[in-house]
Design a protein around this nucleic acid. Sequence first.
DNA 1: TATGAATGAGCCTTCATTCAT
DNA 2: GATGAATGAAGGCTCATTCAT
Lengths: 214, 214, 214, 214
Amino acid sequence: MENKNFHKDVFERISDDKRGRIFGSAMKEFASEGYFAANINTIASNADISIGAMYTYFPSKENLFLAISEYGIGIFHEILADLKAPAGFFETVERLFHLTVRYARRNVDISRMYLELTTQQLLDLAARLAEKMEIDFREFYTALLKGAVEKGEIRADVNIGFAAKFLDDLVLSLQLENSVYYYESRLRQYVGEDMSDTDIIAGLMDVVRRYFLP
Amino acid sequence: MENKNFHKDVFERISDDKRGRIFGSAMKEFASEGYFAANINTIASNADISIGAMYTYFPSKENLFLAISEYGIGIFHEILADLKAPAGFFETVERLFHLTVRYARRNVDISRMYLELTTQQLLDLAARLAEKMEIDFREFYTALLKGAVEKGEIRADVNIGFAAKFLDDLVLSLQLENSVYYYESRLRQYVGEDMSDTDIIAGLMDVVRRYFLP
Amino acid sequence: MENKNFHKDVFERISDDKRGRIFGSAMKEFASEGYFAANINTIASNADISIGAMYTYFPSKENLFLAISEYGIGIFHEILADLKAPAGFFETVERLFHLTVRYARRNVDISRMYLELTTQQLLDLAARLAEKMEIDFREFYTALLKGAVEKGEIRADVNIGFAAKFLDDLVLSLQLENSVYYYESRLRQYVGEDMSDTDIIAGLMDVVRRYFLP
Amino acid sequence: MENKNFHKDVFERISDDKRGRIFGSAMKEFASEGYFAANINTIASNADISIGAMYTYFPSKENLFLAISEYGIGIFHEILADLKAPAGFFETVERLFHLTVRYARRNVDISRMYLELTTQQLLDLAARLAEKMEIDFREFYTALLKGAVEKGEIRADVNIGFAAKFLDDLVLSLQLENSVYYYESRLRQYVGEDMSDTDIIAGLMDVVRRYFLP
DNA sequence: TATGAATGAGCCTTCATTCAT
DNA sequence: GATGAATGAAGGCTCATTCAT
């Protein structure tokens, strides 16, 4: 059983507090500056540890980034876990939208890192980390849709693959609009300042219903 | 009337060929490496001009990036110009989708730069450039939707702002999937390898019709 | 009586096994990497002790190096001890050559360290350690030559000092050729692959005889 | 015809003065500190150029070292060139000894670098550079000895290969004693302070004559 | 005493920018 | 105007050494 970790062993033995500070500091720096502009010395200093310590925990900047990415992406799995409880199709989708908004806001840095990770040619490995999460979401959507068809909740002639991606697109847009300034601002330009999260999700549910109902 | 250009005056007096080489080289570098990892010396060398020349044309890396962004974003205006000819709502939307695919493919570097520009906290100014284009698109969508409502082509109770953003989201996803590897790959994971561009656009039109028809 | 040791007192109280592991590991590292590239942490880890322990035994990298040098150089004294038994001049010289080859091969790391120590400006102290050994060898050569002159084994008009150094040069070349790759390879380029150790020593004895015999 | 240089092209275009300063500074630093302890910033600063400049001339510390080594080793070829004029065997050997002393003294740094290069496991490439010079010297010795045998100047039964190496050993010892402090000091311990260079060379010629004359 | 995590000065290298020619 | 050599601040990373446990 090989060691597939991005961190060195010592990192597992340090206090939760310190580990948290490192993750927080690194996430913030990577999210706001991007991989290349991010400064390891700054990350260490903001986490209140020495650069030396940083390098006893992670063998390189790249590995630190990968570790942070892996951790960050993992957070989004929680959304899926939160959705486990069986419920009707539209109810589930609506909860997914709400959870997405909540998670994106609570984990702005992670959201941004994810975006950076997908759009930049960064590191193959990083992209593959994101893909892992994609797989789980894909399977979730697919199962959800198939179940809904079987139960007659939605029309039977939808193309499952296409519809799944469509749902994911809606989720992605919510994520962007709740973590990336540019997309938040764009949203407001389109719908004005008055439209609440609830309104927006209601709007999305309208889209979903019109598409999936017979 | 102050000079609001990102380039210096000399830049306007050089040959089209040279200007083209600079834009091409810079776009490629910025798109593939990202702003910070991009190397001005490399850009100059690939454009077959001296670094000295580069700095007589642009006062800084930042300004070069901004100039390139402005130019690149302008390209997408052509899509709007191409859509000027009056036509039915659904016909227009379908043409928009086709044009988006074509433009994204033909201008992969620009597409990537646009993405980088919106997701990274890069330069305020850069984001504002992108917003300029957004405005035009927003106005286009709004006019299109209002006209369609007036002509009775689509149901009258749509929220114009929300619907406009919705259309733009669809366009954005097409753009991503045709220029950024990660999103291209994600699309294929969802819909398989067999689905053609035409099929996908047909799928999107289905979404659009179900949403906008009464 | 001050403490002139390079190690701290504790070092004398640890097990022979541990002491041996430290010497072995340090010698190997210093010999193969050179003083500056040598890594104390690596030495400790290869010796299966903690860095902390290393620093309770030796106050610094420099002192560790000196201790190792002192020890290593001491090893070569054994050659002299092995030569104590009185014998004829040429017989003794021949045995010296054979012993040199054997010791150099058996203690490659020490040989290399010795070389490094003499050629690099390393540490004054280190050079002085090597000089200590030199003194013993010098006295040995001098006594040997004087005795041989007295006994009429060699011509009486040799310059003892010069002749002693000459003998030491021959020994040095044997040492180099049996521990440093570059000199081993150089030897082979000159004399071919077929010449055995015995042949080479025979060649050297020929040199010695022609020089010292009347 | 590929570029086998260790330096970048620009280096060939700078003034002889500057090139000289760089070589001098680098040689001194590498010779006195050894490859690893040598500090590129120090080299640059002592040569009165910026570190940036250093890196426009040489792609890396390693390449700088190789360039310096190549140059330094080349200097020793001059000895061979100086010996071209045909002369008797013993006369030639004596001139070789004198030239070696003169060159070693005049190029102390080079001599030391050469030694470092052979004794440390440094860089394969570096060792190969030294070997190149060895080849020329080997061929010189071989031709010299063969000629001397043919002309009846020396006894015919010498083993050319062994004898050649023997001559080179004598030269090497002269080189060491005239550039490396340790060996200079060792020499003095053996022969006293009074023996002049001329005396020492006379001593060596005595060795040579006794060995090579019938 | 032993441990090994922590420290931080220091080194190699990059690259945006300047400026003499 | 064009050139490209020169500059030097800044960043990733190493490793001798310390010290709390």
